[in-house]
Structures are given as structure tokens and as C-alpha cells.
Design a protein around this nucleic acid. Structure first.
Lengths: 153, 153
DNA sequence: TTGAATGCAAAAAATTTGCATATTG
DNA sequence: CAATATGCAAATTTTTTGCATTCAA
């Protein structure tokens, strides 16, 4: 499970913060130091629950943030369109930057690592479900559980 | 569904050998009145979280069961193979009878109704994911969010 | 009889809320 | 300056745990 979302190397996080600050202001929301720290934590972790952000923020140098601030920041920024969330498991929503491409999360029940495949891989299935049930499915919202290569005994 | 938990008085546990009790005993687990009530609640509800079982059991005639009993009963019976669970949302696992066919749950984010499609509808996708990532995906474990026909504006 | 299960109460987790104070725009 | 966001503390909500007692096998 370590390193599951560590490869955010394609993007520096100041870039991320800036483009997202933009999003916030556009919604009449304010860009605060706390929100920036939360955003930075999410960017670094790849995907993170409120709890994970809470402990991540604990070691980034600044003063610890209370849970309420984390929860409210995540909610506000998701509403502003800067974040999106997925349910990787049953415990809590896991947030990630909204500018990350849509994809389906593959969570290994063995080791906990989280892989991804482009959301488009499910296009056929989405179409079939729409035909059969009229249901408009979003496969990106909940993760798919399974076993990764290593964990298949 | 009537009678699923209604005619308790007509049989004792030693006499009543249903398929689920059978499963439990095979694992060295005991068939208790509480477990039968939990099982009956799940059967009647189709799929139910611990909380839902808790309140369902509150109106089935017998004395209320404490949360601990519900949680432990669900866990024990899942382990014995009598129940299975799915994550319909992020709140809590939702249990159903294990003899129910495998299927993918479709949860409408508009009205909350839960539909189903046979798990086999995702066979192609599962195969594609295995080819591309070596990941063995189980689409039946987490539900798929989306909008049902009525809720698509 | 005897180990598994229950019931109860209390502890942990995980989230949320109220409100005075501090900050952003 | 005004409205928003924060910090703190306490309240909820959800799930887990310890332990004496009960009960199925």
C-alpha cells in the first residue's frame, strides 16, 4: 500500500495549487493557507481520505489542522471543482485532483495498492447497461476490488 | 418473505436444519436465535447494512438486539459463507444472502434505488483488464453509481 | 459440560456542528 | 469592511471491545 499514488512526478504542486486557486476564486471561495496545504497533501498522496490528509498535513511543517478544517476544505474544494472523490473502500471517500484524467481505480484486496485504467475501457459496458436498464453508470466513482498480479496466488 | 422470520415458535434450533444453519454448523459455528433473526432480516431486505438490520430486527417481534450482536453475527455468517457483502456507498458494507446470484449493483445517486445486472455483463471488461494489467477484477464487490432512468433529467 | 455467543456498557473511530475569532477579497 | 473560513470543543454517529453470563451442541 505504500507508494500507491506516489507518482505524481508529472506535475509540480505549485502548478496544481495555482490552477486550483483559480477555480476556488471563480466560485467565490477563498484561497487560504489551510486549503493550499490540504490541496498539496492530496496532490502528494495521489488520492487521500480526510484522515490521510489529516496526518499528512501533520508533517508538512505548519501547525496541525483540526479535523473540521480538513473536512470542510475537502468539501468546499470538491464543490468548486478542484477535487473529485472516489470510494476506494467502505471507510471514507478518497479525494484526488480533478484535473487528473478520469479513470477506474483497481484496488488490490491483497496488498492494498491502487492501480488505474482509463475510464474509457468501460465504454462498452456503460453502453450495454444503458441499453438494458436505461441506467447511466459512472464507473469512476467507486473503485473495483480485485487481486493484482503479485497477489494472485 | 412473509414467514421468513415469523414462524420461529414452531421449531427448535436443534430441529431446524435449513441450508444456512447447515453452512454455519459446517464451520463449527452455532445456530442461534439471534443469527436466525439477522439472517431473516437480510433476506427480507434483500441487502442490508448492520444499521438496517439493527432497526429491522427491532420490529420483528423479539427483543431488540444490541449492535455488537448484529455486527458479530454478520461477520460470522459471512465467513461461514451464508452471507456476502457489497459496498453500495461509502458508509457501510451491505450484506445479502450468498445464494443470491452474483450481480453488479447499480446505485442511483438521485433516488438511491439499487438495481442489478448479472455480473457476466462485465466479463469482457474483466478480461480486458486482466490482459492490460494482470489485475483480476471483481465487479460485484463495489456498486456502480449512476442515474436511473427516472433521475436522468 | 464447555466453548461459542450474547448482552451490556464503555471505548474507539470517524464526522459533524456551534460559535467566537481571525482572514481574505 | 463584510463575508468567509478557521480553530476549538463538544456532540453525533458508527463500529469495536471487554467481560460476566447464557446457551447450543
Amino acid at each position: 500500500m505504500p507508494g500507491a499514488g506516489a507518482d505524481r512526478s508529472q506535475r509540480t504542486y505549485s502548478e496544481g495549487v495555482d490552477e486550483h486557486g483559480e477555480l476556488l476564486r471563480r466560485q467565490g471561495l477563498r484561497v487560504t493557507r489551510q486549503r493550499e496545504r490540504v490541496l498539496a497533501a492530496v496532490a502528494e498522496l495521489g488520492h487521500a481520505t480526510a484522515e490521510e490528509v489529516l496526518s499528512r498535513v501533520a508533517v508538512d511543517g505548519g501547525p496541525q489542522l483540526p479535523p473540521s478544517t480538513i473536512y470542510r476544505a475537502l468539501e468546499a474544494m470538491e464543490q468548486a471543482g478542484a477535487l473529485r472523490h472516489t470510494h476506494l473502500d467502505h471507510r471514507s471517500p478518497s479525494y484526488q485532483l480533478a484535473d487528473h484524467d478520469h479513470h477506474i481505480h483497481l484496488v488490490c484486496t491483497g496488498c492494498g495498492t491502487v492501480g488505474e485504467v482509463p475510464a474509457s475501457i468501460a465504454d462498452d459496458l456503460v453502453a450495454r447497461i444503458r441499453e438494458q436498464r436505461g441506467f447511466d453508470a459512472a464507473f469512476t466513482h467507486m473503485a473495483v476490488q480485485g487481486r493484482c498480479t503479485k497477489c494472485q496466488t
